[in-house]
Design a protein around this nucleic acid. Structure first.
Lengths: 210, 210
DNA sequence: GTCTATATTGAGATAGAC
DNA sequence: GTCTATCTCAATATAGAC
């Protein structure tokens, strides 16, 4: 997050940092106000509720993602290149908005159980659709293995990317680009179609009970 | 969880289901009591606090994991086989205790911020150590790529496995064994050392900025 | 735009009768 | 062992003065 100009932005940035560190529920509006340097009542001059602050954080995050994904898709690259670009785009947003990334990951439950987050839910679904689209395309054109469900692959790589936000500090020294390369390298190698394996035989990994 | 015999077990099982579905914080003791069919005060005959219930759920979960990992390590297999066995063992526990698995994944934050969970933290650290050990062994003996940090690999596969609990319903039709095979297949292929790549050159993936 | 003061609600926990 | 009744506390939110 860039240096907050006005008080409203300062509130959002401060709240984001605390929500990411301690969770939304266990961060009180009084604590946010303390950190900002005002009293709790004053926050309600800018926001009508605590959830409005959460919404502003997450919608900004999801909008940034959609922006970058739009650029990636506009390039019309093949499945492998697009997947790599999507991973890199995601990690760049994660780097730019680390607090929002952590909140998004950690509070999916909270967001779902709070009714007024329809808007956020919808934006999140759009993001999911981009991932699913790239993967399906790669499986269809033979770039990716067809012996493993695209759903599984989708979940694995999506979680791998977004959870990287959570582990940022522990990955110190790994630049965004390096991390993106590591993740895509592992998954593209792991999910690469291998000649003679897959479509020709059964279409799933055979059960194997050691 | 097996069919609860006595009231105490019923409380634990009911609470686990609700904690997994709605989160610990947003499940009230009154709701648990309602589901069990008693009034909230009655719960305190069995447990001295809500957190005691949480503790019982998670310690049972972690003990089951440690049991199975112990058996796996006792077999003295090589790194690939051990990793596969650890994944399978984890998924079996996840299948047997799906609620605890979800709680463990979703509430790491809550567990860390609640002081009295030292015991749970310690057990969780032991589990982590098994994963790290297998991976380090595989990297050391040349089974796994050494051009990617073991920390990264550790995080990726660990999250992939435990998050599978979260996606259970959406993976319908994938048996535990099939899912274990899919995950190990992707990661062993993705993380396999390739002759001529790695140690000989640089020891990290080169930065690459598209 | 910020403060003081307070209303309101919801949750965990307890005491003691049955 | 369960219930009724209630305590206590913390948190969101509001009203109105400055």
């Amino acid at each position: 997050m860039t240096e907050p100009q006005d008080r409203r932005e300062l509130i959002v940035a401060t709240a984001a940092e605390m929500f990411a560190r301690k969770g939304i529920r266990s961060t009180t509006v009084r604590e946010i106000a303390d950190s900002v340097g005002v009293l709790s009542g004053s926050l309600y001059h800018y926001f009508s509720s605590k959830d409005e602050i959460v919404k502003e954080i997450l919608m900004g995050f999801l909008a940034a993602i959609q922006d970058r994904y739009g650029e990636v898709l506009a390039q019309g690259q093949d499945a492998s290149q697009t997947l790599r670009a999507v991973v890199l785009a995601s990690l760049r947003v994660a780097k730019q908005q680390p607090d929002a990334t952590v909140i998004y990951q950690n509070e999916l439950r909270y967001l779902r159980e709070t009714p007024q987050y329809k808007e956020v839910q919808a934006a999140a679904a759009d993001v999911q659709r981009v991932w699913a689209g790239v993967i399906e395309r790669g499986v269809a054109d033979g770039t990716f293995r067809d012996d493993i469900s695209p759903r599984i692959f989708h979940r694995l790589i999506r979680d791998a990317v977004w959870l990287s936000g959570r582990g940022q500090h522990s990955d110190a020294g790994y630049s965004t680009e390096r991390l993106a390369d590591a993740i895509t390298s592992i998954f593209l190698q792991g999910f690469a179609a291998r000649p003679g394996i897959g479509a020709s035989q059964s279409d799933e990994v055979p059960a194997q009970t050691p």
